[in-house]
């Protein structure tokens, strides 16, 4: 659905996007992560036909956003990181205005607007003035605006910024619903847990370059494995602890770091071996009350990937 080929954007001496190659399949919710100034918004604006790249091409559903902007616009719904709402306009009128701009006829408009207000949980605010809506509601209204012409791709730049937890949860549910509708979503956010909960794949940008791109599972694999954390009801006696540590070391290939009633083993994830380890601990009589892999948060993954990228680029 999205294809960026050697995409470059320079602002004077600043390289905002640096030979970015990207591929996102249809139906994915793809996260765009990176520190401020990494080039996320620029890349998104190029895909939304609002910015011309210095070199390279960006394609949406096989259509070039650079060379065929009109055709590309029909396939893209764009929601910027600012509200962009008019005052003295009711919610339905706001949508009706943009529906008219995209060339929708009056009959189709009403049905579409009702459906989108319903999807974004704004049906109750149909007659409310846009400038009197809360931030979260405005964001959802902007999302509805971006979906008016039923685009295949939705580009959402920081859609949850400044929202309270309830509004963020609502936005998350809406995004999942949109994904169920078969749309592809490209979403950037600084609130990384938000992305980890909704995204199926992700690209990490650093200084305009791609530091990582792949599925969430691939991102986790990039890390040093998820450590196995064993929690005990009480600290076992020294002899039992020694024997357990030795058997775990033989089985998993790594010795546990023991801190009283919490043991941590840095090892690659393997369900079969993990099951064997648990069985062995039970047989030895170790008082286990917790046995799980501790997966890295997206923040950890992000720091890991960008950190590794920084180190690599300094070499």
């Amino acid at each position: 659905m999205i294809e960026c080929i050697e995409l470059v954007k320079r602002y004077g001496k600043t390289q905002a996007v640096d030979h970015l190659n990207l591929h996102v399949d249809a139906g994915e919710i793809h996260g765009f992560v990176g520190p401020n100034g990494a080039g996320k918004t620029t890349a998104m604006r190029i895909l939304a036909t609002l910015c011309a790249p210095t070199a390279g091409d960006a394609r949406v559903d096989g259509v070039s956003a650079v060379h065929q902007p009109q055709q590309a616009r029909a396939r893209v719904g764009y929601m910027p990181d600012f509200f962009g709402v008019y005052d003295n306009l009711k919610a339905w009128e706001y949508l009706d205005f943009y529906a008219g701009c995209v060339g929708m006829d009056a009959k189709a408009r009403r049905k579409r607007i009702d459906a989108l207000l319903d999807l974004t949980a704004l049906s109750g605010k149909r007659e409310a003035y846009v400038d009197q809506l809360s931030r979260g509601m405005k964001q959802r209204l902007c999302l509805a605006r971006a979906m008016l012409h039923d685009p295949k791709l939705l580009i959402l730049d920081e859609p949850a910024s400044g929202m309270d937890p309830v509004a963020r949860a609502q936005m998350r549910d809406i995004l999942r619903e949109i994904a169920r509708m078969g749309k592809t979503v490209l979403i950037s956010s600084h609130i990384l847990p938000e992305l980890s909960e909704v995204c199926t794949s992700m690209t990490v940008l650093q200084r305009g370059k791609k530091a990582f791109s792949g599925t969430m599972t691939e991102l986790e694999k990039r890390l040093h494995g998820a450590p196995l954390v064993i929690r005990l009801t009480q600290t076992p006696d020294e002899e039992l602890a020694r024997r357990a540590a030795q058997r775990l070391s033989e089985l998993l290939g790594s010795a546990p770091a023991m801190e009283e009633d919490v043991w941590r083993i840095e090892t690659q994830e393997d369900v079969q071996r993990d099951a064997q380890a648990l069985r062995m601990l039970m047989e030895l009589g170790v008082p286990v009350c917790g046995f799980a892999r501790e997966h890295a948060t997206l923040e950890q993954a992000f720091m890991e990937v960008t950190g590794a990228y920084e180190a690599q680029s300094h070499l």
Binding site: L50, R73, A74, Y78, P80, G84, C101, V102, G103
Partner: peptide
Amino acid sequence: ERQTFDLLRVTGV
């Protein structure tokens, strides 16, 4: 100034 011009542009109007 209101930053709504970009939104108009993407509609293709």
